[in-house]
Computed example of a mutant assay.
Amino acid sequence: MKRKINLLPFVVIATFVFLLNWYVLSGIQTLTISTWLSPVFWGFIIFITVSLAYSIQRMRDNGMDIFFKITTHTFLVLLASELVFFIVLFLGDGYRLITGAARNVYWVEFGLVLFGITVLIFLYGIIRGKYAYRVIKHTLYFDDLPENFDGFTITQISDVHAGSFKNAKAVQRGIDLIKAQNSDVFVFTGDLVNNKAEEIVPWMGHFSQVKAPYGQFSILGNHDYGDYVKWENETIKQANLQDLKRHHGEMGYRLLLDEHVALEKDGQKIILAGVENWGIGFGERGDLHKALTDVDPKSFKVLLSHDPTHWDSEVKKWPSKIHLTLSGHTHGMQFGMEAFGIKWSPVKYRYAHWAGITSENGRYLNINRGFGFLGFSGRVGIWPEITVIELKKSRL
């Protein structure tokens, strides 16, 4: 029996696209009296919209194949650029209504220039931005940091999503940046793959190059459990998870599954703990109590926890002080602006803290913006991140 096609997504998308493009076209038409502009314009818009609706419908059976990626990315770039044009045109029309002036073509021309710039920015994000690795450094001060760990450095990456990678040379540049930091310890805070363990196999030679004097440690993220694809049965799904855990070890990473290790330096130690994924809406698997079993409450503690909602919900209120939590997960939505004193991304409407350092009651959280990418095959304004954190002893 043929599966019935759900037309609702198409109707919603088509209605929104029609209204937006009707307004956009009204602006462009002020620049020309050509009779072919309207049919060509609408023909292109209809083609893109129908292709998008069809690719979404078939995704359930074919996954995010090349057709899906082309249609979604084309639609996204077009939509973002048209929204920029819409804003300029709307402001111009607002000015026109207030002053009683005729529609000024200079507003339209300015809008078209910004439209073109937006397209170019997104193309850069798709071609180069997703591999434009940045090293972001933080120095954090603690009164109770053991003296011998003054100046101790941690390099963190998160959200590799190896199944999205295509450019081995670009990934190697990121690995070389990690190695160049020469940190005391290296940590990875989850989402090694998109869905399946096999995705990391072609890249294991890259990530196994990362070494640190006090070791390499890792945790699992929500995507690592294989929850977002269909499996033939639960046994196969669990076998995939076991394969992924084995790959962590093969790369030289100590996978922390609700457990901790002590890092010792000249007779003093700090605790490095890691929990399974715990996130609101993404599975609350992690057991912090188990991870800190037999840990002296007064110990200096660093926690690896993939989803930052864990910090807000549980970690920052934990009876014994967890000094620093390292998370990822948000990707900064791979789109936003962090310049000229502005820090904005649409992801802020989902997560109170979505990138960088925040603190409360002397407990710090760092959210890494992610090393890889997922869904949108690019990054615009929120670049892939390698974090370096230096721990310092507070001086009176």
Rank of each mutant, 00 (worst) to 15 (best):
I5Q: 10
R58I: 08
Q181R: 15
A14C: 14
L37D: 10
L97I: 13
D307R: 15
L263K: 03
Y228F: 13
G375C: 03
K348I: 04
W231M: 08
Q238V: 00
F300M: 02
I121S: 07
G362L: 00
R254N: 15
V210K: 09
E259M: 03
L7I: 13
S34V: 04
G129C: 03
D65L: 03
A355I: 01
F85N: 04
D312K: 15
V275N: 14
W354C: 05
K237A: 03
V229F: 10
Y349T: 13
H353K: 07
V17C: 06
T189I: 01
F10N: 08
F373D: 09
L78A: 08
G129L: 00
S394A: 10
G111W: 04
F67P: 06
M64N: 03
P202D: 05
G27A: 07
V108Y: 09
F75N: 00
D224S: 07
V40L: 15
K166Q: 07
D312P: 05
P308N: 10
G286F: 09
R246E: 04
N6G: 12
L192Q: 02
F44L: 14
G111F: 04
L25V: 02
I357T: 02
E147V: 02
L83F: 05
Q209T: 06
T49K: 08
W383L: 10
L25H: 05
P202G: 09
D191P: 10
V50Q: 07
S55Y: 02
L292H: 12
L241W: 09
